[in-house]
């Protein structure tokens, strides 16, 4: 168990943080919804009802999709774009998909390379893009889930105010859908841009997200 935690501290730690904050979101979201119910002279709903409602899941999904979009775009953009001096970037001149030799695929694979990296056929092409493929799929699926659950929550509000419910196609053109979407995207893009440019001049000793403290500001992609 100790060896397991030592080897997997990051994934275990963030997994537990995720679960704890999801529970926190459920409890506070439930309180917020019932406060609103009281204001509108409605009946309070149970916590169980709330966590299985579109209201809760629309909030969860709108945050998921923006996070996965952030990482998806970052993985893609860093193939081709460079930020001189940033640890988050490849070195100037390394932009692009790089050679098979550099990427250790096909004939250049090593004995311990993953099997699909060694094959040199379509499977190698798929495996070469598997991280971006999976992250993109999760982004699309969570954005779709946001739109489907967001529509139900939106329609509940519409009905509560004697207005007509909308179809899914109508919902994805509403200000509600785009407000939920863009308010999350803007913060993600700012955070990524900040991380890229702040890491040129600022340091965190011991973190692989930072250059070594004594590395020159102009040094790009130096492992911490």
């Amino acid at each position: 168990m100790r060896a397991f935690l030592k080897d997997n501290g990051l994934s275990v730690g963030f997994g537990l943080l995720f679960l704890a904050t999801l529970v926190g979101q459920a409890i506070s979201g439930h309180g917020s919804v019932n406060h609103d119910q009281l204001l509108h002279h409605g009946d309070p709903i149970s916590l169980g009802h709330y966590v299985s409602s579109a209201l809760f899941w629309a909030d969860v999904m709108e945050n998921w999709q923006s996070e996965y979009l952030q990482f998806t775009l970052y993985i893609f953009a860093t193939i081709y774009l460079i930020q001189k001096g940033s640890n988050e970037s490849k070195k100037p001149g390394d932009a692009g998909r790089e050679s098979d030799e550099e990427q250790l695929v096909g004939a250049h694979a090593q004995a311990d390379s993953p099997r699909w990296a060694q094959l040199g056929d379509l499977r190698t092409t798929i495996y070469s893009n598997s991280l971006l493929l999976v992250m993109t799929s999760i982004w699309i699926a969570s954005w779709l889930a946001q739109s489907i659950t967001g529509r139900i929550a939106y329609n509940a509000d519409q009905l509560g105010h004697q207005s007509a419910p909308v179809s899914w196609l109508s919902y994805i053109t509403t200000a509600d859908f785009w407000n939920r979407t863009l308010q999350n995207w803007q913060s993600e893009f700012l955070a990524v841009g900040s991380m890229v440019i702040l890491s040129v001049y600022l340091r965190q000793r011991g973190s692989p997200e930072s250059k070594p403290v004594g590395a020159a500001h102009g040094a790009t992609a130096t492992e911490g």
């Binding site: 060896a3 397991f4 080897d7 997997n8 994934s11 275990v12 997994g15 299985s52 409602s53 579109a54 899941w57 629309a58 969860v60 999904m61 998921w64 999976v134 999760i138 699926a141 969570s142 779709l144 889930a145 489907i148 659950t149 529509r151 139900i152």
Partner: peptide
């Protein structure tokens, strides 16, 4: 690498489960 593959599978399964449940909730119209 002890347990690392297990963590990989737990994450993927958890994400897939969450997405499926959310889409289900939206489709059922709860």
């Amino acid at each position: 690498m002890r347990g690392t593959r297990t963590m990989f599978i737990i994450y993927l399964a958890g994400i897939a489960g969450g997405l499926t449940y959310a889409i289900g909730v939206g489709l059922v119209g709860h």
